[in-house]
């Protein structure tokens, strides 16, 4: 049932995203900007959810991978004047290296310990970014990253990159490897007994997650043409956590839906009030207390209840 709803939702979402291809011809620059933002953050949230939803490890450190690639790209383009492909590769490589380091330090641990260690490393990374002025520009960040193409061309590049990344992640999640990850989440010892190294599998998941987060970071750096320390701060690690929770961490499309809701709600609420965090906080509290499956989980539950009640009715009629 869940897989069915997953596939259905994936189909719906893909068609919505395909519709967005026509959008830049119809709408203004601001809408385009918001849609690019949604697509990048969706990739971020889905990549994060490889760890959270499928490995059951809550990471508060994904901002490291996101900003590591963005900063590397910024530095190699503006300060080292490297060609763009080298810069892209360097960015992705940095993300992978950082995910290996973070994974090495944190993956032996679970639950609270894992969350705390990733959080601490994230704070350390932020501290270094703020202090290492000669490279990272400190509080000002790095400006002047030129993407040398128009916004609309960039819009298409973004959408296509994000879609293909999502497709690859989808393939990974629903492969044997993804199944093993879920197996670890449900029962670690059994997976170990079937001759799989839990730590190695988790490390692989961490690297994949870090790599795709890095891609999102690179797209982000080109979007504004600047990298600021806000994306290295741990509160930026909380963005995919909240997005995944709003949408539903146990499904593939959950984080995407969560991101759409998150970005639009942020944009909408900040028009009326400065105090938008308080609403976000209240939403988070309500979700944890009442809708732990998120949007997708809640809908799937309602649909399956409806479906089952229909079945029951049919059955009763036949009996009569």
């Amino acid at each position: 049932m869940e897989r069915l709803s997953n596939k259905f939702l994936f189909f719906v979402l893909t068609s919505i995203l395909l519709l967005t291809f026509a959008l830049p011809l119809l709408s203004g620059a601001y809408t385009n900007y918001i849609i690019i933002k949604i697509s990048i953050l969706s990739l971020y949230a889905v990549a994060f959810n490889i760890m959270f939803g499928y490995c059951g490890l809550l990471s508060f450190g994904h901002a490291i991978f996101f900003s590591a690639s963005a900063y590397t790209l910024g530095v190699s383009l503006t300060k080292l004047n490297l060609p763009i492909f080298v810069a892209l590769l360097a960015g992705l490589l940095t993300s992978v290296i950082f995910s290996i380091i973070v994974g090495f330090l944190s993956l032996r641990h679970k639950e609270i310990h894992f969350a705390m260690i990733t959080l601490a490393l994230s704070m350390l990374f932020w501290g270094v970014v703020m202090k290492w002025r000669s490279v990272t520009g400190g509080e000002d960040g790095i400006t002047g990253i030129s993407r040398s193409i128009s916004m609309i061309a960039y819009y298409y590049i973004c959408i296509i990159t994000v879609l293909s990344c999502l497709f690859i992640i989808y393939k990974i999640i629903f492969s044997d490897f993804g199944l093993l990850l879920e197996g670890i989440r449900e029962n670690e010892i059994r997976v170990e007994f079937s001759a799989h190294s839990v730590v190695k599998l988790r490390m692989l998941a961490m690297i994949i997650s870090g790599l795709f987060t890095g891609i999102a970071g690179i797209l982000w750096a080109f979007l504004d043409g600047a990298v600021t320390p806000t994306i290295a701060h741990w509160s930026f690690s909380a963005v995919p956590v909240i997005a995944a929770l709003i949408g539903g961490p146990q499904s593939f499309v959950g984080p995407i839906i969560g991101t759409i809701v998150y970005v639009i709600a942020e944009d909408f609420i900040t028009r009326f009030t400065l105090y938008w965090q308080i609403w976000l906080g209240i939403v988070v509290v309500l979700i944890v207390l009442f809708f732990r499956g998120g949007i997708v989980g809640t809908i799937a539950k309602v649909v399956s209840e409806f479906y089952h009640s229909k079945l029951r009715e049919k059955y009763r009629e036949r009996e009569n």
Partner: peptide, 15 residues
Amino acid sequence: PVAFQLVLTFGLVLI
């Protein structure tokens, strides 16, 4: 699960 507790208290931080 622990994740929910952490996220709930994180919501309190925002508030």
